[in-house]
């Protein structure tokens, strides 16, 4: 099928971009890794969060931060394609239009998966242990992939509409900050009421709690459904606006 063929060709192209400029993965990894080191070896000793090693508590939040900073590159790559005239070139060719966006989205899924794997490996060296079985790991993978998909479609919007490089990547900062006001670093119980209400009702807490429970083989409550609703909801809304922005330029 034409759309699959075109998506595959264009996906191969942007994966080459990533392999040729590994700095895009390294810069994505630096902040979350530094934070993991900082929180485990500096602040972690003073934080009372659950019973096990703090790194077990912290890891899910770090993974979300990595994904939130990784998707900024999707916006950047789209912006560059637009600016360099490659969009115009592809659009004036018999190329399936949706392939152009999906290729970037798939690239984001793969490159973020690479970052996640690297962070998990380093966490293992830092003492992270998980009793999760194959099924739990699959669930974790699924939730993280959905989270990446949601944020990537969100990133497509500034990628298509931004007027400058800064504008294309600036939207990611609040996303990177969101885990701090959640259960990612410390339990929400000690936060003042207003902050706590926000923290407990924003998507990061539900996702972090779900991933943490899965990895630590703890019973999972409703949070998995809340997490899924957030991910799917953001994906649907972001996709709608992304496609609308795309139609405006094609």
């Amino acid at each position: 099928m034409k759309i699959l063929h075109d998506t595959e060709v264009l996906f191969g192209r942007s994966m080459r971009h990533i392999l040729r400029s590994p700095d895009t993965i390294i810069t994505v990894l630096i902040t979350p890794l530094a934070m993991m080191l900082l929180f485990v070896y500096v602040f972690g000793g003073a934080i009372r969060a659950g019973t096990g090693a703090y790194v077990n508590y912290l890891l899910p939040g770090i993974l979300l931060i990595a994904i939130a900073s990784g998707i900024a590159y999707t916006a950047l790559r789209l912006f560059t394609d637009r600016q360099k005239g490659l969009f115009a070139r592809f659009h004036s060719m018999p190329v399936a239009r949706s392939s152009i966006l999906w290729a970037h989205v798939l690239t984001s899924l793969v490159s973020n998966a690479i970052s996640v794997v690297v962070i998990v490996l380093i966490a293992l060296l830092m003492g992270f242990r998980s009793g999760a079985g194959v099924l739990e790991w699959l669930e974790v993978t699924g939730i993280l992939a959905l989270f990446t998909l949601a944020l990537t479609w969100l990133a497509v919007i500034p990628g298509l509409t931004a007027k400058s490089v800064e504008g294309a990547s600036a939207f990611a900062y609040p996303l990177i900050f969101l885990p701090f006001i959640s259960s990612a670093f410390v339990p929400t119980a000690t936060m003042p009421a207003v902050v706590r209400v926000f923290a407990e009702n924003q998507p990061v807490t539900a996702i972090v709690d779900t991933v943490r429970s899965l990895l630590n083989s703890e019973p999972i409550g409703n949070e998995i459904w809340i997490a899924l609703v957030w991910c799917v909801g953001i994906t649907v809304v972001a996709y709608f606006f992304a496609v609308r922005a795309y139609k405006r330029i094609v």
Partner: peptide
């Protein structure tokens, strides 16, 4: 187009 639309990384 007016500016060379080539993929610089390739």
């Amino acid at each position: 187009g007016q500016f060379a639309a080539v993929d610089g990384i390739l």
